Structure formats: structure tokens, C-alpha cells
Computed example of a mutant assay.
Amino acid sequence: MNAADLGIDLGTSSILVYVRGKGVVLKEPSVVAFDKDTNRIKAIGEEARMMLGRTPGNIVAIRPLRKGVISDYTITEHMLKYFIQKSLGRMSFRKPRISICVPSGITEVEKKAVEDAAYLAGAREVTIIEEPIAAAIGAGVDISRPCGNMIVDIGGGTCDVAVISLNGIVVSSSIKVAGDDFDEAIVKYVRRKYNLLIGEQTAEDIKIRIGTAVERPEPQSMEVRGRDLISGLPKVIRVNSEEVRDALKDALSQIVEAVQSVLERTPPELASDVVDRGIVLTGGGALLNGLEELIESKTGINTMTAEEPMTAVAIGTGRYVELVSGGRKLDA
């Protein structure tokens, strides 16, 4: 059996693995549960996520990636190894060729750390791809032609905005404001307004169910459970979509500013292509209700979300390997 080609979307909040010929075979949270007393890993992925905020003192559930960058090297290596083996099963005797995508703004040192972790996790060959390129391929954009395509990839830790032409990034911006910041903003808002402490998972649930970037014709609301900061007792409140929009305002305006700054720096010919072709949104953050309308109203450019925004980067990372191994070498 020949070694498989893998494409890995190494995200701050989740890791997706694409296997050549099979598509996306794995999507799990990038969380590791670690026992401080014995110095051993207790769980990785979904199992570890269930432990977030629910562990005894000796077990810590940590995210080894912060803002798209490796913050804990050893644990990232263990996590990668686990996900690679889980994706391949017993089907491969040879080491796989792996392509991994990274945010467009990371340094050479950070890139090298990702590469080293992949080799230590069992890769035979490692290709590092910038996130906007992978997102564009995964969203079905033909990036090989000499015309401008604008991609806005909103992940868990970073938001990457880029104009791509002829297989390369012409102008880009990577900001450390994304899905995790949306959750954080909701936690802070609920604490400030209701004196209620809620966890990350509750905040994410609020964002997914009633979160919005623009005013909804009919505001929606939901019950939220947390701990009252004054009495210390559990409490239930109702939060509506207008409040969530208010909470997300600052984070969203930073994303809009990043889009505007990239447009301002785009050469005129490519900018006119973007106006014709529109802006494509990818990443989990693109699923926020009303985000298309918000970006469209601020830029005047037609904005649409990729068909599968959550998996676009992983698919593009894997397909990049196929394009390379098919002899059509792209410039990284």
C-alpha cells in the first residue's frame, strides 16, 4: 500500500485531516487533557474538549495552539501524531506526505516549529501552505489565472484576508481576531451586564444559535445558565440576538477594517477583478449570521460564503498536495 497524502488544517479550535482520495476524514477539537501529577496525556480531541472547565485540579484541558501559532510544542507533536494515526488507521506502512496550512502572517520561526512537529509526528515530507491559498482552493476558486480573488478566512484564532492571483498572495493581512474572540466577547458581555459567569462552550453555543453581525428582523433569544457572581449560585437568564450583536461589535469591526485595508493596498487591476468576482468567506467564523451582509454593506462588494466554509481549508490543503503530486507544481 502506497503512503497516503494528508492535508492538515491545524486550527486553533479544531483540526481537520484530509486524506487523498477520501476527503475530510477527521474533524476534532485541538484540545489535549493533561495530568499534571503524572505528566501524562489523558485524552485528545473531542474527548478532551468534554473535559474543558470540568476537570479536577490535577487534570488540565489545554489548547496547544494559540492564535494559529504553536504555544506548546511537545503537546502539539503528540496531538498531531494521534490525529495522523487516527486518520490513516492501519492502511499505511510508509510515512505519509503531509501538507499543513498556517496563517499568512506567521514568522519563519513559527513556520519551522509547525514543520518540525509534523516530521516528529511521522511525516515523510512536509509542505507548508498559507491559509488563504488553501481556503481559495478548497472554496473552488481557480487561483492559477491572472485575476484577483479575495478570500476572507475566519478561523478560531486568526482571520486571514488576502487577494490571490497566479497561485500567489498579492496583498494580505492576518489579524488575531476570530471565532475564539467572538466567544470571549460574549463571556465578557454576559459578565458585565448580568454579573453571570459562563464558560467557553456556553458562549460558543450562544454564538452559533443566536449570534448575528447585523440586526435581525425578529430578534431571537435563548436561556443561558451560569454562576451568579454576587451570590455564587447557579442562575438562568435570557439573552437575545441584539445583545449578542452588541457584544460582537468590536471584534467584527476589526475584521471589516482588515478587509478594507487589504482592498486599499490592492493594485487597481486586481481590485476591479475583486469588484467583479466578489469576496469569498471561509472558515467557521464565516457561518456567523449576517456576516456577508455586514462586509457587503461596508465595502460595497458582493460577498458570499463558500459552500463548505468549515472544511474549505482542509480540502484546499489536501488538494494542494494532489496538484503538486500531479506534476502541476504551485508556488508556495
Rank of each mutant, 00 (worst) to 15 (best):
N2V: 15
L6Q: 15
K36D: 13
N39P: 05
N39V: 06
I41E: 13
I41S: 12
A43W: 11
G45F: 04
L52W: 03
I70E: 00
I75A: 00
E77H: 06
E77Y: 08
H78L: 07
H78W: 11
G89P: 08
G89I: 11
R97Y: 11
I100E: 05
G105L: 06
I106E: 00
A113W: 07
A113I: 06
A123S: 14
G140W: 03
D153G: 02
D153A: 09
G157Y: 05
V170W: 02
I175L: 05
G179Y: 03
F182S: 02
Y189V: 03
V190P: 02
L197C: 03
I198W: 04
G211M: 07
V214Y: 07
E218F: 14
Q220V: 09
G226Q: 03
V236K: 13
V244K: 05
D246T: 13
S253M: 05
Q260K: 15
V262G: 01
V262F: 01
E269Q: 11
S272R: 15
D276G: 10
G278W: 07
T282N: 04
G285L: 07
G285N: 03
G290L: 04
G290Q: 02
E292Y: 10
L294T: 02
E296V: 08
E296Y: 10
S297M: 13
K298D: 10
I301V: 13
M304E: 14
T305P: 02
A312V: 09
I315L: 12
G316D: 04
G318W: 01
E322P: 01
D331L: 12
